[in-house]
Design a binder for these strands. Structure first.
Length: 785
DNA sequence: ACTCGTAGCCTTTTT
DNA sequence: GGCTACGAGT
């Protein structure tokens, strides 16, 4: 690496940023400005200059960003021991070592949002707080808000001024106390405890300041006050703080992200060098013009340029559809056409939306055409019930004070311990100031319970003690033993025999074991159990995204930040969706929504389509929509508008008032002959199977495990679906099927995957519709004449 | 104590 | 439209 000139091939501002090593630095990096390149080159350059890699700390917002940075740096200069990770991960490591400074045990548990909610519930009881005027979620959000602002329970109690603050101050201390009792932290605590620790312990602050002489932060615009305080304390004697950010891409205000942090940086580090990266290497000028036109509408914004460097391409398109279903179908068809024409791969395409729920229709559209895809985000693996149950056993083994884990596992699988017994345990634990597990032990010793509960508890304690012996061994061994001794597999089978997520749940257990095996083998420092628990708590599905497979990518606009794709679709540009309804409550909400769309627009390299539907279903009810007000802010004269909604009824509203853009415009791809293929006849897509390398129908379900690491859970589902008698290919819209009692009919709707797949059939005999789960009813396919 | 049914919430976005 | 949490019934 010593001979590479890391300044080579950079533009002047990039060079400035890379070669600025000592002293504070703020990089205002627009989208597609080669920011990651600059950051990695900078680290490489620092190492070349003789700076020790272990004195460099690079913090990111997501695991995905950290991984990306790590692999780019690896390619550039090989393996170097630079600390790269998320804020939360960094805080966990610090807190594990210095936990006692903030009154935590070293083996503290990390609670996700669900766990935190159940802690809040117990806290409400302890505080005798009645939930008449606020919802649990609202309370949780408000507590989170204060934590992000570094307001401790004590401070809030002392300073509560408004009635709102007063209300929270009645519950927040109880919540925090409950967490401490469990030896647990929530996500916000990771930051808050660390910040408080650094602030109150000058010795530790000085030590870490010295240890991490060079600190870098990515996505600085998304940091909150707690994060700023952490950074500030790491950069006092050695103020070598390099922050990268783009105020126009700040989209986490709802999580306490504070754009003010940029101002704080300038205030606290007056000598800060500010470098602007404005050249855009990603997108065509057409795309940038639209993005720029939009973001200009933000009032609270520092003027910033988007300077195109690419040659002109195709215009940005705005498509209008009659319904959301048509929108999904047309997008799937367009992608199919692009792939069929040999111009594109499936991996070149991304469909972006505002809320996770909106992936469903797109998924259906792609499924009907047998096109593989990956959905990023949504339900996370570690949030699935069976996974959480097992992780709870591990949490309790690691931290016997963890009452949330205790309550989760004490009667899972059922062992005769019900509400009554649980209440007694809880009372005893409260009275004797013991953890619930410890309280159990005394109760069993005193035999102060009825026979059934007593035998159940005795069994549980014995189980726990047996499992405890495995804690320091291999993870796989521990998890496998837990599954065996609890009879969890049998429990699942019994649970699901009538429900039918059987296969899914069992597959998840295997997935869990596989992940454990990975961790067993990559034995880094510390106990494998704790690394696993940390991994389970802080790893999102986002990180599993694969960029090497050939798949269409579906994700939210938030998840798309930092990524780029040749072809991007942004759907549902409709009022109350984008901008989202709830953004109206916040005074700056609309501006953040606009930035969110800006992020989406600037993901596209070559082609970009925005769309809305005149009618869209919401909670089962389809109704007319109002086009997004953002559409009116775009430079329409430079865009191509295509109206594919055949009839405009009196409900439909046009985003431009008058329908004068309604000319029949050509589609994206230059060769019109190619686009003609995108018809509604689904038989055309059978040829796609070769192109897309869909798993064949007869795929052996057992082979799924071997390719496990390459596939997302969602993908597993669709592969499994193809492999079974629930194949979406067989049971799709339009098929004629025969039901044992109702006779013949046509499938008019289908949804779900695998054993969950259900179809709605309209029967020829009486015209009535019935919905079936394919796992319950066998429907014979009839050939159409 | 466990099972089944349904009412009500939900859906912003993530560590 | 789907999940979940709670309540009534066994």
């Amino acid at each position: 690496m010593t001979n590479i000139d890391l300044l080579d091939g950079l533009n002047p501002s990039q060079k400035q940023a890379v070669s600025h090593i000592d002293g504070p630095l703020l990089m205002l990096a627009g989208p597609g400005s080669g920011k990651t390149r600059v950051v990695t080159h900078r680290v490489g350059y620092m190492i070349q200059q003789g700076i020790s890699p272990t004195s460099i700390l690079a913090l990111t917002f997501t695991n995905k960003a950290a991984d990306e940075m790590r692999s780019r740096l690896h390619r550039l200069v090989g393996d170097v021991p630079v600390w790269m990770g998320t804020f939360h991960g960094f805080c966990v490591r610090l807190l594990r070592r210095y936990a006692r400074l903030v009154g935590l045990p070293e083996n503290f548990s990390i609670y996700d949002t669900d766990d935190a909610l159940s802690v809040l519930k117990t806290a409400l009881q302890a505080a005798q707080f009645s939930l008449t005027h606020v919802s649990l979620n609202t309370l949780a959000e408000k507590i989170s808000f204060y934590k992000n602002r570094l307001v401790t329970p004590e401070q809030l109690q002392a300073e509560a001024l408004s009635s709102d603050e007063h209300q929270i101050s009645q519950i927040y201390p109880f919540y925090q106390q409950q967490l401490l009792k469990c030896g647990a932290v929530d996500f916000d605590d990771l930051l808050m405890h660390t910040a408080v620790m650094l602030r109150s312990s000058p010795a530790l602050q000085a030590e870490l300041d010295e240890r991490f002489r060079y600190v870098m932060v990515d996505e600085y615009q998304d940091t909150n006050l707690a994060q700023y305080v952490i950074l500030r304390h790491l950069c006092v004697r050695f103020p070598n703080l390099a922050a990268t950010g783009d105020p126009d891409q700040s989209i986490y205000g709802w999580r306490g992200a504070n754009l003010q942090n940029i101002a704080y940086l300038e205030r606290d580090y007056p000598t800060v060098r500010i470098v602007r990266l404005e050249q855009n290497y990603r997108s065509t000028p057409e795309i940038l013009a639209v993005a720029d036109g939009l973001i200009q509408n933000n009032q609270y914004r520092k003027a910033k340029r988007l300077v195109p460097t690419r040659v002109p391409g195709t215009p940005v398109r705005l498509s209008v559809y009659a319904t959301a279903r048509r929108e999904a179908e047309d997008i799937a068809e367009q992608i199919a056409a692009g792939v069929n024409a040999g111009q594109r791969h499936l991996r070149d395409y991304a469909v972006l939306y505002r809320t996770n729920a909106q992936s469903r229709l797109i998924e259906q559209g792609l499924q009907q055409r047998h096109m593989p895809y990956q959905v990023i985000g949504g339900y996370r693996f570690y949030l699935r019930r069976e996974v959480k149950d097992l992780v709870a056993y591990l949490l309790l083994l690691n931290n016997p004070d963890d009452n949330v884990a205790f309550e989760r596992v004490i009667n899972t699988p059922p062992r005769g311990i019900g509400k009554q017994t649980l209440q007694k345990i809880s009372q005893a634990s409260l009275a004797q100031r013991l953890s619930m597990l410890a309280a159990c032990r005394t109760m069993v010793a005193e035999k102060s319970l009825d026979k059934r509960a007593l035998s159940g508890l005795t069994g549980f304690l014995k189980l726990f003690d047996t499992l405890s012996e495995y804690v320091h061994g291999s993870l796989v061994e521990l998890i496998r033993t837990t599954i065996e001794l609890t009879g969890y597999r049998e429990y699942l089978a019994k649970q699901n025999s009538r429900d039918d997520r059987d296969a899914d749940a069992l597959a998840n257990l295997d997935e869990l074991l596989a992940e454990a095996a990975d961790l067993d083998h990559s034995t880094d420092d510390g106990s494998p159990l704790e690394s696993f628990l940390e991994y389970a708590a802080l790893q999102g599905d986002l990180d599993k995204m694969q960029s090497d497979g050939d798949l269409v990518t579906l994700m939210t606009l938030h998840a798309a930040k930092g990524l780029e794709f040749p072809c991007v679709y942004i759907i549902a540009l409709e009022e109350n969706i984008l901008p989202h309804q709830r953004s109206r409550d916040e005074p700056l909400g609309l501006e953040e929504e606009r930035r969110l769309l800006f992020v989406g627009l600037t993901r596209a390299q070559d082609q970009l389509q925005l769309s809305y539907a005149r009618r869209r279903g919401f909670r089962g009810q389809e109704s007319p929509v109002i086009p997004s007000s953002f559409l009116m802010e775009l430079p329409r004269d430079q865009m191509q508008r295509i109206d594919l909604s055949e009839s405009s009824d009196e409900y439909s509203q046009d985003e431009f008032g008058v329908d004068d853009y309604n000319q029949a415009a050509p589609l994206w791809d230059d060769d019109p002959a190619q686009t003609v293929r995108a018809t509604h006849d689904s038989h055309d897509y059978d040829t796609l199977d070769d192109v897309c390398q869909v798993a064949p129908d007869e795929l052996d379900p057992h082979s799924i495990n071997s390719t496990r690491s390459l596939m997302l859970a969602s993908n597993l589902a669709s592969t499994a679906a193809n492999s079974s008698r629930y194949s979406p290919k067989l049971y799709c819209q339009g098929r004629i099927v025969c039901h044992p009692t109702y006779g013949s009919g046509r499938i008019i709707a289908a949804s779900g995957l695998g054993p969950k797949r259900s179809v709605t059939v309209e029967f020829f005999s009486d015209g009535l519709r019935h919905t079936f789960r394919l796992s319950h009813v066998h429907l014979n396919i009839e050939e159409e004449s």
